[in-house]
Nucleic acid binder design. Structure first.
Length: 422
RNA sequence: GCCCGAAUAGUGUAGCCUGGUAACAUAUGGGACUGUGGAUCCUCUGUGCCGGGUUCAAAUCCCGGUUCGGGCCCCA
């Protein structure tokens, strides 16, 4: 017996129904915010990913050489490919450029619930603007996108790397110190962080202030701590405007400030954010993003960029955990011949309905009426048309409503008009 | 990559501890009820993750592998 490779999945019609629903739902939200869809190749030159994240990333890539000896890799995420495409072909597009995408990505990781080696991401990149209104809209889009899918319980956390950097500067911490401290901050391990800060010769008073600021949602408190840093002050003022727009213009109040969000300081800068679905437990992060700088790394003219990515598979899991009722597959009409001499008529009726955009199917197993009704029920057919000799004598058929069980006899020629009205 | 648990018809489960004919429900296929039974009844097919070991005998005990799940590492 063969089975799917580790960390990959087959999707049955029932599962695809859910995935297509979610994809369509998200595409509608993206386009309603003025975004256009983009698609890039499933594999790229390996350097695209190593340039961004360092050689060590190869361990977690599906990397290979093709027959021409080119070093390639299956994409582990979509931001780098999309920015590569921007630099290669879209730099002269009018700004701001709003791009969204769906795509499967590949990472050599240990699979867990909500974590696969082949997985799907949805996301977007906003190129050419970093105004407060643009950033506020990006946050609103991420939040709205997930809310629109039907999710009830999500948590938006907003952080800022410029402010964190200013704090490090203020505490006179070296780059090496930061490497130890950042992971602790990211995981909110504040006890360990306190010990580590002492090792870095930070005063007790500063440590207490730092820990306090990391855990507060109060911008004035943060401001009081770093008011002597010009960059941080500018950034804080922008944050205030963004949050005010988010609250008063986008009417999203369901967020918290969480400076402990770090997201691998490498190319992110300024505002960063995450959205969690607490219902998922350990692998609860649904969405992550922020502003970043990749364009100059890829050789393009520097413009502000920001974006986010959503874990598509986890969003489905979260919806399922919340008991969300996905739309079920439906068939408008199932046509049942009483015996085989009706076949031509039955097919003609079915085709006529199909041509009018009504989904229709007919019995192809020569079953009795009872079994056919059962099949129609299993396929969630809304109506069944029964075609038999008695009706045909008068050029009529019987239509049965599968919800109510009510039946009526109507003329053959009236079938499609009758059914299109409903 | 590390620790722990699990794997039995298509699906959901029982049996495993204490080795001895593999079972139940449901789904699917066929049939009966000679056109309404979304029934009911009858019936066929279909099951031990893979490979070794112990044993007269392994679904059951032991070892290795694979996959899934829980937790780490990581998470661009």
């Amino acid at each position: 017996m063969f089975q799917v490779p580790r960390g990959t999945r087959d999707f049955t019609p029932g599962e695809m129904q859910k995935r297509r629903y979610l994809e369509h739902n998200m595409a509608v939200t993206f386009t309603s915010f003025g975004y256009g869809e983009i698609q890039t190749p499933t594999f790229e030159n390996q350097e695209l990913f190593t340039a961004k994240s360092g050689e060590s990333i190869i361990n977690e890539l599906y990397a290979f050489n093709d027959k021409g000896g080119r070093a390639l890799a299956l994409r582990p995420e979509l931001t780098a490919p999309v920015i590569r495409c921007y630099v290669e072909r879209l730099q002269m597009e009018p700004k701001p450029l709003k791009l969204f995408y769906f795509g499967n990505c590949y990472r050599y990781d240990r699979p867990q619930k909500g974590r696969y080696r082949e997985f799907q991401q949805a996301g977007c990149e906003l190129i050419g603007t970093d105004t407060s209104e643009a950033t506020a809209e990006l946050l609103a889009l991420a939040f709205t996108l997930l809310k629109n899918t039907g999710l009830q319980n999500i948590q938006l956390n907003i952080g800022n790397l410029t402010i964190i950097s200013a704090i490090f500067k203020k505490l006179h911490l070296l780059k090496d110190d930061q490497k130890i401290l950042l992971p602790l901050i990211d995981k909110s391990q504040f006890d360990e962080l306190q010990i580590a800060l002492r090792d870095c010769n930070v005063s007790e008073e500063m440590i207490a202030n730092f820990l306090d600021v990391l855990q507060t949602s109060d911008l004035t408190k943060i401001h009081a701590f770093i008011c002597d840093d010009a960059d941080a002050n500018t950034e804080l003022a922008a944050m205030e405007t963004i949050l005010s727009l988010l609250k008063n213009a986008f009417h999203i109040t369901d967020y918290i400030i969480k400076l402990s969000i770090v997201r691998g300081l490498d190319y992110y800068k300024g505002l960063v954010f995450e959205i969690d679905a607490p219902v998922l437990g350990a692998e609860k992060q649904l969405c992550g993003g922020g502003s970043y700088d990749l364009i100059s790394l890829f050789g393009g003219t520097e413009v502000p960029t920001s974006g986010f990515a959503i874990g598509f598979d986890r969003t489905i899991l979260a919806l399922e955990e919340e008991g969300f009722c996905f739309p079920s597959p439906k068939l408008d009409v199932f046509v049942v011949p009483v015996n085989q001499t009706m076949n031509t008529t039955v097919i003609q009726i079915t085709q006529e309905l199909r041509n009018r955009g009504i989904s229709a199917d007919f019995d192809q197993l020569r079953r009795g009426i009872g079994k056919s009704l059962k099949y129609a029920d299993a396929k969630h057919a809304e109506k069944v048309i029964i075609v038999g000799p008695k009706e045909l004598e008068n050029k009529t058929v019987t239509i049965r409503d599968m919800k109510t069980g009510a039946q009526e006899i109507i003329a053959l020629k009236d079938i499609s008009t009758k059914l299109s009205k409903n």
